[in-house]
Computed example of a mutant assay.
Amino acid sequence: MLSDDRTQNAISHTALIVAAKRAIEHQRSDRLFDDPFAALLAADEIPVLLERWQKVGDDLTKIKAKRTRFIAVRTRFYDDFLMSAQLLASQVVILGAGMDARAFRLPWCNPTCVYEVDRPEVLDYKNSILQDVPAKCIRTVIKADLTDNWVDSLLSEGFSVSNPSIWLLEGVLMYLPEVAVFKLLQTISELSVDGSFLGADFVSVKSVEVGEKARESDRGRVLRHWQFGCDRPEDFLLNYGWDATVVQPGEDGANFGRYSECPPSRVVPGTRQVFLVTAKKNSSVILMQ
């Protein structure tokens, strides 16, 4: 998604990690979603994770449950969001699509157009793995870096700026520099009519600070690459014309029986937090440009 080669490779690797965690969730009898393609897309990452986790403690079952629950909850949360929003919009754009297999595994209404945007090598890899799997929608891939001009390709492939759209940025914004986040959200807003939908997860400012310390100590294969944090996503998105709802994993609507503890209170500043956000476009709520 980014133009720096080292960062690109790291982000591509996080896509494999997410696929591996989805594959592990899919193996559960009480799984929160079906993703039979995740294990194929994860390549060799599943045994790598299991080996790392086995070193943490003896009870691998409990370790797996704890280490995969966020991805499991986030995936199910945005599955539900997409299935609900598709009743009101028939064009979906998944930015930084990575190993997302929703085009192949979700029961899309007919005809729903799903556009996947990511770098060529990421989408080429996924296409090679799933080349014989029929999509359950009209799937179009847009091979482009999110910091480059992907809009022209999207429009040339039939995306309509006159119709409501659904945007998904799952595991994307925290990896981008602040200026790139601003530009990306401004672009999305300009392409979206009122009644469009947006799903995106955010991490808090403190989470990014923890990630910076992880870089210094060469720890944290995922969070060490975080660059953008936001403590009030609903206020932030309001500036771009989106009326947002924010929940934390573990709260009602984002638990699914996987969290026994409450998430950190949002009234306490300077805490590590993750936010699952859904929003609807409403140009009348724009506060500033």
Rank of each mutant, 00 (worst) to 15 (best):
D5Q: 12
D30S: 13
F33K: 08
A42E: 00
E45M: 04
E51L: 03
Q54D: 04
L60K: 02
V73D: 10
T75N: 06
D79K: 05
D80M: 12
L82T: 10
L82P: 14
M83S: 06
S84W: 08
A89T: 12
Q91M: 09
V92Q: 08
V92K: 11
V92S: 08
V92C: 11
V92M: 12
V92T: 07
D100G: 06
L106G: 09
P107V: 12
V114E: 05
Y115D: 07
E121H: 15
D124N: 14
N127W: 04
S128A: 10
A135D: 03
C137A: 14
V141T: 14
K143C: 03
L146Y: 06
L146K: 03
D148W: 00
S156E: 11
G158Q: 04
V161Q: 15
L168W: 08
G171L: 04
M174G: 00
M174L: 14
E178I: 05
A180R: 10
A180N: 12
V181E: 03
K183S: 03
L184H: 02
L191M: 11
V193Y: 01
S196V: 07
L198W: 15
D201M: 11
K206I: 10
S207C: 09
E209G: 09
K213I: 15
E216S: 13
R219C: 06
G220C: 02
L223H: 10
R224G: 00
R224E: 02
C230N: 08
F236K: 01
Y240A: 03
D243G: 00
T245F: 05
Q248W: 01
G250S: 12
G253E: 08
F256H: 07
G257C: 13
E261F: 14
P264A: 01
P269K: 06
T271M: 12
F275V: 08
A279P: 05
A279I: 09
K280H: 09
S283D: 05
V285R: 03
